[in-house]
Structure formats: structure tokens, C-alpha cells
Design a protein around this nucleic acid. Structure first.
Lengths: 396, 396
DNA sequence: CGTCTTTGTCCTCTCAGTGGAGAAAGTCGG
DNA sequence: CCGACTTTCTCCACTGAGAGGACAAAGACG
């Protein structure tokens, strides 16, 4: 099919598209209830959207006691590509215009191989999804990278864990290859967008999403919008000091949160514990797998290993320490914990909660839920699709 | 004079009023350049504003090579009252509609005496200003209190240092007494508004204002707007842990920033040092005044006293430690240091800068100015006037 | 004194948007 | 099967915001 070229011509049309995206098919009358426009004006705008092909009218809905209504919905042929580049793996997904995932692939990868190699892999994954009949092409793509991004241009800036990407024109390059509009953002921000769109943060306007994966980052949502900071590095909490004079960190300081707790730090500490004979359980896993990951620690803790549990608790304490400060400062309405380490589950969550509720003032914590993300590994790709759809469903 | 009753009827009028407030008198043509309206439409809206009396046309400006323009300005009779309630003193000021201070009084006071006593004092100060001929009445008032505020209602909530104020309807009570609209906010937020309006933060959209007075608080401005958090306690950084297992704090925890550095903490530490014979300079001042304040420490440091300097440096280090975390998280474009302790001046600033620049990542600090506030004790009252004027100069 | 520039006013035209009348297409009770 | 009532959608006349051009007013300047 020919790809989407049209964009909403005005704010009304943009609003209608967003309503159809978030609420599914609707009749003109239902749309009118949500949009504060007269029926006549609404009909005009809907007709224009129908002309552009962005939305279609397919069939009649069941009667609700009167004339049956026409179903207006977003063009079911629209396809968005969501890409979530992590430190050690990539997620690529195809969604329809309602941001429902139609297909999703995850593959291991190493960002440090640089943008060219990674893009090759991403494009081949996208091609595979296309070949499986899910899409004939893409109307837009969102992509998340594990580092700060100059958002308007879609270019990574000074990313610590992916040095080869500094200044690489991700947006432009990918847009060329895919032949569609592309938006780029930090992976944590996309996770926040995902949880806001379809996860635990649907009804909250000001919240934080703490992503604990290979590193640690924080997505900040203010008044429903992602806040990216002056240079795009807002939420970079991995190098906040969690333990004074603590472990040395790659950044040159000591005691950074990331040096004490993250996927990488946890694996390191678990290996150390195994080698020092502090945990038979972990030692056994180390023997069997030739290495340890956060998942091993989670499994060991689930099997009742005290050392593994301690590692998780200690990490949760450090994380909670930092989050407590952020809660005092930012006074969010919700804190979401996500990322690969979420497999550690409720042990981790409990440790974080204890620390935050103890350290922050009651006014800030009184009604503050601290919860695990709801979408798991799909948060990023859904957020990516949401990012590009927000862009395309706004006035040109 | 009769007080202002009218409000702008639409967004255009509101915008015009704000332009006149921030840019002083303007001709219709000059306004047209800033407002993206046709001259005809602009003329209509200006005429309507003239009818309401909110603005006046007084005289002709000098010619700039053609027909002379009419000067359009905000009604010079408009008066706003700005009130800044601190822990130990009150500032009350009268401004015109351009938020220029026409008169300013500062008096010592103790918030803990409760809202009734404090209001009596504030009202008598306002009466004194009125009696001196600066105002015949007030068109609006802004008031800042040293604690969290439920902003929409203008009611303090659970304020630690002013327990008697919890739930007291400040906005309503003051509005009754003064007979004009009133807005209430946290004192730190008002300081941020003040520095944004007339101080160092005029051109920045995302910045932090750290106020170090009797306590410590932080004003957060996102996209030009003050961010207040979910329950109005955003920026409450006094109880973030600055020193693990540090000094006990009134809040029940240990090592809170406020327990280590603030006007009160500094006075306490200086007294201790004087009594232990660690500083002859401070001991002399203690003898002379019967007590020590932050100003004494500043004077001692200026006189070359090493102990006083150490106290300031150590405090700056703790503060910088916390600010470094906030900078990593929030990635502001500017950090402003203000409040009573600013008398400590560049010694304090240097200590804070050192710590922040060392602990935060280069991307966040690379282009980050950390400066002292420009307005000193007038920041709060200017911010208060700005608060109410923003309210009144927005569509009804 | 005529020309040029700037400022402000007036008038007409366009177009977004409203609200009401009514057509189309149902349900439901008798 | 028919009439009364509902709901959905369309059509049309009217309103008001706003644009843009013509023109008047008022000064500068050679």
C-alpha cells in the first residue's frame, strides 16, 4: 500500500486522531461528546480526515435505540515501527495506528559495535517483520537509544556506554533507510511514554520511571509530557552518589548508584560472592553457565539463597536512597520501577519502598504508589510507537 | 480610586497586558510586532482594554520618522501587594502594574505565632504603605509562606516549621481583609518567579532556585512555569540526606541537608566552635551580641577567620553534594543560589560550584551557570506581585 | 512644498464555527 | 403492521473573529 503522507491539518483533526488512537473506533456522535465541537463542524473535520485516508469508515455499529452509527477508525493499514536499542539487546516491533503490537522480535546485540552495525541488524529485523506479512511498509518509526539525545535533531550526544554513536544522525539515517518519518529519544523516556500510554501511568500527570537495566536511568513526566532537560540528559541518575566513598565508577567518581546497583554491578557482585564461597547456590550457577547475570541472582533468591537476597536488598537500599531524594525534590504522583532487573521483583520493590518511605517526608510519600512497570519488555517499543504517533498526529 | 475589576476577555488581551507589564509602554505598532495579529484586530483589542481602564493612552511618543505614536501603558494607578513571609521576618512591598517596587518594608516576626498574629502585622504594614501615599488600595496581592501550599486553594499543608498554619485558609482570609484577589504560594517558588521576572533567570526556561535561609528549599521552573508537584511539596530538598549517619534532624532522620547547613545550623555550629575555643573571632562576636547568626559567620570569614571559612566551605560542600544530584536528575539551564545565607557570598558559591562540577556529568554541567540571585531580599515580593499579576492578566 | 515614512483607522471579505431544522434509520409498544 | 419516540447524521443560514488593503493623519527631510 502507499504510505501515509497526510498529516492533520489543524488541532481539531489532531485531537480526533489521538482520540481514535487511544479509544479505538468511535461514531461521530461519540467523538462529538469528547471534543467540544458542534456536530456540524465535527462532521466537516471527520470528512476531511476520511478524504486524506488517515481514517476510514467501515460498517455500522449496533443500534443503541435509534439510527445506527458509522464506525470511524484509524486506517487499519497504518503501520508504525518501534525500536528499542538497549546495551545488550534490541527490540523491534510493528504496531498498528492504535499502537497495538502486531509483531515483536528481540535479539541480542552490542551497542558498542556502533551505529552502522546496529542499524544493519535493526533493518534486517524490520525486514523480517515485514516479510511475515505484518506490514508492507512503515508510516513512521520511533527509536530509543541508551543514552542522552538532542531531541529536536534526533542525535545522541556524548553517550557514555555507546561512544561510537556520539553525533551520529540517527534520525536522518533511519528516515532515509525506512523512507518514513522517524523520531529518536532516550530509551528511558520511551519506557515512560509506554507506561503512560498503556501501562500503570495512564491516569497520572507527574511521575517518574526508574529503569534498572545494564545501567540506571530515570524518565521524568511533567504535566503529561516527557521532560528532557536543557541538554537532553535529564533523568541521568546513574551517577548520583548513593554511597559516599563507595565503589569506584567508570565516570571517575566513587559511590555512583550505577557502580553499586545495576544489571552489570549485580552480576559482578554475585560472581564475587560465588568465588568467595559465600553462596553455594550462586557458585553452582556460575559453574553451570560460565557466568552470572541478574537473572541468576533472581533465581537464586527465589530458591531461598540468603546471599542473593542480601545483594538484592542492598541494591534496593541504594536505589531507594537515591529515589527518596528524587521524591522529596520532585513530589511525583507515581514511581514506576522497570527494566531488565525487574525480574528481581518484589524483593527489590520492598527494599526500595522501605527506604523511600523512611527517608522522604510524609507529605510527599503519603499517597505515593511505588510499583513495577506493567508492560515489561514491550514498554520501550510501545513508547517508541507512541513517540512517532504523537509527532504524526499533531498539526503539520 | 476604584479598584480594578476588569479582567482580560480573551487570550489576546491577556498577552497584550503581559507585554505591557514586561516591556513597559508601547505603541500599537510596537505591540503589533510582538503579537502576530493584524493591525486592525490589534486596534480592536487595545480599544477594548482602554474601555475597561486596564490600560491607558497617555500622550504621544517622539516621532521616528513619521507620524507620532500613542503611548499605550498599563493603568499607572494599579497597585499590587507583595508579601513574603519568612521564618523570622516579613517583607511587604507595593508595586505598580509593571511590578516595579514603589515601597518596601521588612520587619522581624516569628511565623510560629500563627496566622492570626502574623496577618495582623502584615495588614498593619500594608496600611503603613498605603498611608504613605503609595496606594489607595490594592488590585491584587501575592503572598509567600515558608512551607508547602495546596496551590489551587491557597492553603498551607502540613508545614513543618509553621504548624499552626496547617489548613488555614490564607487566600480566602487575606482576600477578605484586603478586598482584592489573592494568590498564595511557597516562598521559594516566589523567589524563582522573582528571579525569572526581573533577575538572573530572565532568559532561561528550565532552572532551579536554591534558597538557603532558616531552612533550605528549591524552586523548580519547567518550561517557564513553576512546577509544584503532586501535593505542592516539590522542591522540599531540606530533608534529602546529605551526610549518611550525619547529624540528627528534627524530622526524625539523620544527615538531612537542613541539619548540616542552613541559617539555623550554621548559627549552631558557629556557637559551638566559639564555645570550644576554635575561633577567637567568633567567640568575640558571641560575647558582643549574646548570640551568633549566619551574618556573624560571614563577617568573621570576611575578616579572615579560618574556622568561619571552614564552616562555610563545609556547608557549601553538603549543599553542593545535594545540588549535584539534582543537576544530574533535572539537567537545568541555570542554578540560582539565594536566601538569607547569600551574605556568605562567593566563598559559599565557590564551594557549591566545586562540588557540583566534580560530581555531575559533563553533559549536564558543561554549560551550567551557578550564580547568586540578583534581587536579594526583593526577589520574594517581586515574585509575589508577579504571581498575582499572572493570575489577573490571564483570561477570566 | 512635495515626497517619503510611520502610525493609526475604516471597510470589505473570508472562513471557522454554531445551532436549528429535518432527513435517515433504527427501537418498541400496542 | 403502524405510529410514537430515539439516535445519528446532514444541510443551511447566521455570527463573529480576524486578515488585508485602502486611506487618512502626522511628521521628517531635502
Amino acid at each position: 500500500m502507499r504510505r501515509m503522507t497526510a498529516r492533520p491539518a489543524n488541532a481539531h483533526q489532531a485531537r480526533l486522531l489521538q482520540l481514535l488512537r487511544d479509544g479505538g473506533p468511535n461514531s461521530r456522535a461519540q467523538l462529538g461528546d469528547q471534543v467540544d465541537l458542534s456536530r456540524s463542524k465535527l462532521a466537516v473535520e471527520v470528512d476531511r480526515l476520511l478524504e486524506t485516508g488517515l481514517v476510514v469508515a467501515d460498517g455500522l455499529a449496533a443500534s443503541r435505540g435509534g439510527r445506527r452509527s458509522h464506525n470511524i477508525r484509524l486506517n487499519p493499514g497504518l503501520r508504525f515501527l518501534g525500536v528499542d536499542i538497549g546495551a545488550t539487546s534490541v527490540d523491534v516491533a510493528v504496531t498498528n495506528a492504535e499502537l497495538e503490537i502486531l509483531g515483536h522480535i528481540n535479539q541480542p546485540m552490542d551497542v558498542r559495535e556502533g551505529p552502522v552495525a546496529v542499524f544493519e541488524q535493526v533493518l534486517s529485523m524490520a525486514a523480517k517483520l515485514r516479510a511475515s506479512g505484518l506490514a508492507e511498509g512503515f508510516d513512521g518509526a520511533g527509536i530509543g537509544v541508551p543514552g542522552p539525545v538532542r531531541f529536536p535533531e534526533g542525535v545522541p550526544v556524548a553517550p557514555p556506554i555507546m561512544p561510537g554513536w556520539d553525533g551520529f544522525p540517527v534520525r536522518e539515517a533511519l528516515s532515509q533507510e525506512l523512507g518514513c518519518p522517524v523520531m529518536v529519544d532516550n530509551d528511558v523516556n520511551l519506557m515512560a511514554l509506554g507506561e503512560q500510554h498503556a501501562g500503570v501511568a495512564r491516569t497520572v500527570h507527574d511521575f517518574l520511571v526508574v529503569k534498572i537495566g545494564t545501567g540506571i536511568g530515570c524518565g521524568i513526566v511533567v504535566g503529561g509530557d516527557v521532560y528532557r532537560g536543557t541538554t537532553g540528559s535529564a533523568g541521568d541518575i546513574g551517577h548520583i552518589q548513593a554511597v559516599p566513598d563507595g565503589r569506584p565508577c567508570a565516570c571517575g567518581n566513587r559511590g555512583c548508584l550505577e557502580a553499586h546497583f545495576s544489571g552489570a554491578a549485580l552480576a559482578r557482585d554475585a560472581t564475587e560472592a560465588a568465588q568467595q564461597g559465600r553462596s553455594a547456590e550462586l557458585a553452582g550457577r556460575l559453574e553451570a553457565n560460565g557466568g552470572l547475570s541478574a537473572a541468576d541472582v533472581a533465581a537464586a533468591a527465589a530458591a531461598g539463597d540468603a546471599t542473593a537476597l542480601d545483594l538484592i536488598r542492598e541494591g534496593g537500599r541504594s536505589t531507594g536512597q537515591v529515589i527518596a531524594g528524587l521524591v522529596s525534590f520532585f513530589n511525583p504522583g507515581l514511581v514506576v520501577i522497570g527494566g531488565g532487573v525487574t525480574g528481581l521483583g518484589h524483593n527489590l520493590l520492598a527494599a526500595i519502598r522501605t527506604q523511600v518511605y523512611r527517608q522522604s517526608l510524609p507529605l510527599a510519600t503519603g499517597n505515593l504508589p511505588i510499583v513495577l512497570g506493567e508492560l515489561g519488555p514491550t514498554a520501550g517499543v510501545i513508547g517508541a510507537a507512541r513517540l512517532i504517533s504523537d509527532h504524526l498526529f499533531s498539526p503539520a
